[in-house]
C-alpha cells in the first residue's frame, strides 16, 4: 500500500511540475464554466416559455441544467483524459526510467495501481474544482443535491474507466502521441459502439453493444439513479483495463 502511494504521489507530482496539470484543470474548468452558462441560459429560456404557457414557474434545475451539463463534460473528458494518461508508461519507457521501477522491489500491480491512482487523483481534482459552479447554483437556486452527487459519481467512474484504457494503451508503446491517439480512439469506440445496432430491432447483438457502451451507463447516474448494474459495469471495466495493463507490462518483460 505504501508503495502504491509512493508511485501515485510521484505521478501526481509529475503532473504538477509540468504545465500539464494546470492546463488540464484550467481547460476543464473553463469548458465547464462555458457549458454552465449555456445550460443556464437554456434553462432560463425554457422556464420562461413554460411560464408563458401557463406551466409551472420553476422547472427542474437538475433535469434541464445539470444533466446536459454533466453529459457535455463527459465528452470533454473523452478528449482530455487520454492526453493525461498518454505519458504514464510511454514516457518512462522512452526515457528508460521504467528500469528504475522494474529493478526496484516493487511488484507490477503496485506500479500499475500507483500510476492509476496518480492519474485518478488529478482527475478527481479537476472534478472537484468544478464544484465551485455547483456551489454558485446552490446559492441562487434550489437544485436537488442527490442527482448532482450521483451525476458526479457517474462522471468519476467514467473518468476512471477512461484512465484505465489510457494506461493500457500507454503501456503498449514508447510513443506518447501514439498512446494518446490510441487511448482516444479506443475510448471513442467504446463510446459509440452502441450506435451500430438498430435499437428498434431488439436483437441480442444490439443489446450487448448497448451494454458495452461506456456512455449508456452514465445516463442513469445523471438522472440521479445509482444502479448497481452500472456500478458493476464501470468497476469491472476498470479492473479489466488494469488487469490487461498488468499483462501488457509483463509481456514487455518477455519481449524486451
Amino acid at each position: 500500500m505504501r508503495n502504491i502511494l509512493t508511485i501515485a504521489q510521484k505521478e501526481l507530482r509529475s503532473y504538477f511540475v509540468s504545465p500539464m496539470a494546470y492546463v488540464a484543470i484550467g481547460f476543464f474548468v473553463f469548458i465547464y464554466g462555458y457549458f454552465f452558462v449555456v445550460s443556464l441560459n437554456f434553462m432560463v429560456r425554457v422556464s420562461m416559455q413554460a411560464g408563458m404557457m401557463g406551466g409551472p414557474q420553476t422547472i427542474n434545475i437538475n433535469e434541464y441544467m445539470m444533466r446536459p451539463l454533466l453529459g457535455n463534460m463527459a465528452v470533454v473528458m473523452l478528449f482530455l483524459l487520454p492526453a493525461l494518461t498518454g505519458r504514464s508508461y510511454a514516457e518512462e519507457k522512452r526515457s528508460g526510467t521504467i528500469e528504475l521501477l522494474l529493478s526496484s522491489p516493487l511488484t507490477g500491480p503496485q506500479i500499475i495501481l500507483g500510476k492509476y491512482f496518480g492519474a485518478l487523483a488529478l482527475f478527481t481534482l479537476m472534478l472537484a474544482v468544478t464544484l465551485i459552479h455547483v456551489g454558485v447554483l446552490f446559492i441562487y437556486g434550489e437544485p436537488e443535491l442527490g442527482p448532482i452527487l450521483s451525476g458526479y459519481l457517474g462522471l468519476w467512474l467514467m473518468g476512471g474507466a477512461f484512465i484505465s484504457v489510457g494506461l493500457l494503451i500507454s503501456s503498449m508503446t514508447k510513443n506518447q502521441t501514439v498512446a494518446v491517439m490510441g487511448a482516444f480512439g479506443t475510448a471513442l469506440m467504446l463510446w459509440i459502439v452502441s450506435w451500430i445496432g438498430d435499437p428498434s430491432s431488439g436483437s441480442t447483438t444490439t443489446e450487448v453493444l448497448a451494454y458495452l457502451s461506456i456512455l449508456d451507463h452514465f445516463d442513469d447516474f445523471s438522472k440521479g439513479v445509482i444502479d448497481t448494474k452500472h456500478l458493476a459495469y464501470y468497476l469491472s471495466f476498470i479492473t479489466f483495463g488494469l488487469f490487461l495493463t498488468a499483462r501488457s507490462v509483463d509481456s514487455e518483460r518477455w519481449r524486451g
Partner: peptide, 9 residues
C-alpha cells in the same frame, strides 16, 4: 542501467 534512469523534473 546504461542510461541513468533519472526523472528530469
Amino acid at each position: 542501467p546504461e542510461t541513468p534512469p533519472l526523472y528530469p523534473d
